[in-house]
Amino acid sequence: TTFEIRVGDLRITLHNADEEEIRWAEEALRRGIHADEILRTLEERRR
């Protein structure tokens, strides 16, 4: 599944994310964390 998060002009697309990952990514985007860093962190958490 694919889920797109939008916060203002910012956007990130997550693939195969669970609800916790989606909530975490949305909050991180709101705090101004760059999408590349969010994706990198999620990848590390999945390992």
Rank of each mutant, 00 (worst) to 15 (best):
T1H: 13
T1R: 13
T1D: 13
T2N: 09
F3K: 10
F3V: 14
F3R: 09
F3W: 10
E4S: 01
E4A: 01
E4M: 03
E4F: 04
I5G: 01
I5E: 05
I5Y: 02
R6I: 15
R6K: 15
V7P: 01
V7Q: 05
V7I: 14
V7S: 05
G8N: 05
G8I: 03
G8V: 03
G8D: 06
D9K: 04
D9S: 13
D9E: 10
D9H: 13
D9Q: 08
L10A: 11
R11C: 06
R11N: 12
R11G: 12
R11F: 14
I12L: 15
I12S: 01
I12M: 11
I12V: 13
T13A: 04
T13K: 11
T13H: 10
T13D: 04
T13G: 03
L14P: 01
L14W: 04
H15L: 09
H15E: 13
H15Q: 06
H15R: 05
H15M: 13
H15P: 06
H15C: 04
H15D: 05
N16P: 02
N16D: 12
N16A: 06
A17D: 02
D18H: 08
D18N: 11
D18C: 08
D18A: 09
D18K: 11
E19W: 12
E19L: 06
E20K: 09
I22T: 06
I22N: 01
I22P: 00
R23I: 12
R23V: 08
R23F: 06
R23K: 14
R23P: 01
W24D: 01
W24L: 08
W24Y: 15
A25L: 07
A25W: 03
A25R: 00
E26A: 13
E26C: 06
E26M: 11
E26G: 01
E26K: 14
E26T: 12
E27F: 08
E27Q: 10
E27Y: 09
E27G: 08
E27W: 13
E27H: 10
A28W: 12
A28M: 08
A28E: 14
L29D: 01
L29V: 08
L29H: 03
L29I: 09
L29C: 04
R30P: 00
R30T: 14
R30G: 09
R30W: 07
R30D: 05
R30N: 10
R30S: 15
R31C: 09
R31H: 11
R31W: 09
R31S: 13
R31Y: 10
G32H: 04
G32Q: 02
G32P: 00
I33E: 11
I33W: 13
I33F: 11
I33D: 02
H34D: 14
H34K: 09
A35I: 09
A35V: 14
A35D: 05
D36N: 08
E37V: 12
E37L: 09
I38P: 00
I38E: 00
I38T: 01
I38C: 00
L39M: 11
L39D: 02
T41V: 14
L42G: 00
L42T: 02
E43P: 00
E43L: 10
E43Q: 06
E44L: 06
R45V: 11
R46W: 06
R46K: 07
R46V: 04
R47D: 12
R47E: 15
R47M: 15
